[in-house]
């Protein structure tokens, strides 16, 4: 028996989208509560998935509970569609839910993500599913769940401001660049998952529905479309996103999130779009960065 037929046989006995119907119902109920109470972490009974924690089992369970045969799925890790993690999750759903997959942001109805929000503006009807490792924004300030729950209950977020202010005292600015806390609809402080703070403004008043799944921590939360999402800051130290001095070396895009790529062992490097689909589409449209020719050769 080949490995492929073994996988086929194994999955043949699985339910559509892998999870059993009772589990899906439980997760679906949690998703609805999350949408009704934006930013509040709804506990759910996370299931074992055929992949290790850290591979986005929370996001996978959310996607499995919402996905249907008419969906088109995109999966990104950082901004890329082609990492092992993204490829595996995409292949998993192509197999267990028989759905179309895509790398094009505009074609996807569901986008599962780790670390990034696509540069292309999401639209009404799209759903962004985040894989979240640590859903509790107060966890590093207060390890006890009973205490953090109380803080959320009372909207008692002074500690979080203290921590950000200590940051300023130490560094002259707020040094947090990933998982930068936000306040949702003026009520719940929420961890936007380890996305760069560059992406925080995209969460605010998004046209898309945003769902968050944390598998190991057993939490689901949500931000409905057209919802206020404000990054915490201070009047004298307003929230700022990262800025990049150069445009993307490949497609010339300004105002996008860039990754540093090492070109050789002599210190050669370039900055390119972290959102690979965005970059590819721009290049297909004829946009060029200052290293696009060279980079093509280096990649070959």
């Amino acid at each position: 028996m080949t490995l492929e037929t073994e996988i086929e046989d194994g999955l043949a006995s699985y339910n559509f989208a892998y999870l059993d119907e009772q589990t899906k119902r439980m997760i679906r109920r949690a998703i609805l509560k999350g949408i009704a109470i934006p930013g509040y972490q709804v506990p759910f009974a996370s299931r074992e998935m055929p992949m290790p924690y850290g591979w986005g089992t929370g996001g996978v369970q959310v996607t499995a509970s919402i996905i249907g045969p008419d969906d088109t799925l995109k999966v990104i890790d950082q901004g890329a569609d082609d990492t092992t993690n993204a490829v595996s999750i995409r292949a998993f759903f192509a197999k267990v839910a028989d759905v179309e997959t895509t790398t094009r942001t505009g074609e996807a109805t569901i986008i599962q993500t780790r670390h990034r929000i696509p540069e292309e503006k999401l639209t009404e009807g799209q759903i962004l599913v985040y894989q979240v490792p640590i859903p509790e924004p107060l966890r590093f300030l207060e390890p006890r769940e009973t205490e953090t729950r109380k803080m959320h209950a009372l909207a008692e977020y002074g500690l979080m401001h203290v921590k950000l202010y200590e940051d300023i005292a130490r560094n002259g600015h707020i040094a947090t660049t990933y998982a930068y806390p936000v306040k949702v609809e003026g009520r719940y402080v929420m961890d936007p998952s380890p996305t760069p703070k560059f992406d925080n403004p995209k969460m605010h008043m998004s046209d898309a529905l945003q769902l968050f799944g944390a598998g190991r921590e057993k939490r689901i939360y949500a931000v409905p479309p057209h919802t206020n999402v404000v990054s915490l800051d201070f009047e004298d130290y307003p929230f700022e996103i990262q800025t990049f001095e150069e445009p993307c070396a490949l497609c010339g895009a300004h105002g996008v999130y860039l990754d540093e790529v090492i070109l050789d062992d002599r210190g050669g490097r370039m900055f390119v779009c972290s959102d690979t689909d965005f970059c590819e589409e721009r290049r297909a449209e004829g946009h060029r960065g200052h290293l696009s020719g060279e980079a093509m050769e280096a990649a070959e």
Partner: peptide, 8 residues
């Protein structure tokens, strides 16, 4: 399976 997915 499919009806509850679409109703959900």
């Amino acid at each position: 399976v499919f009806a509850s997915q679409s109703v959900f």
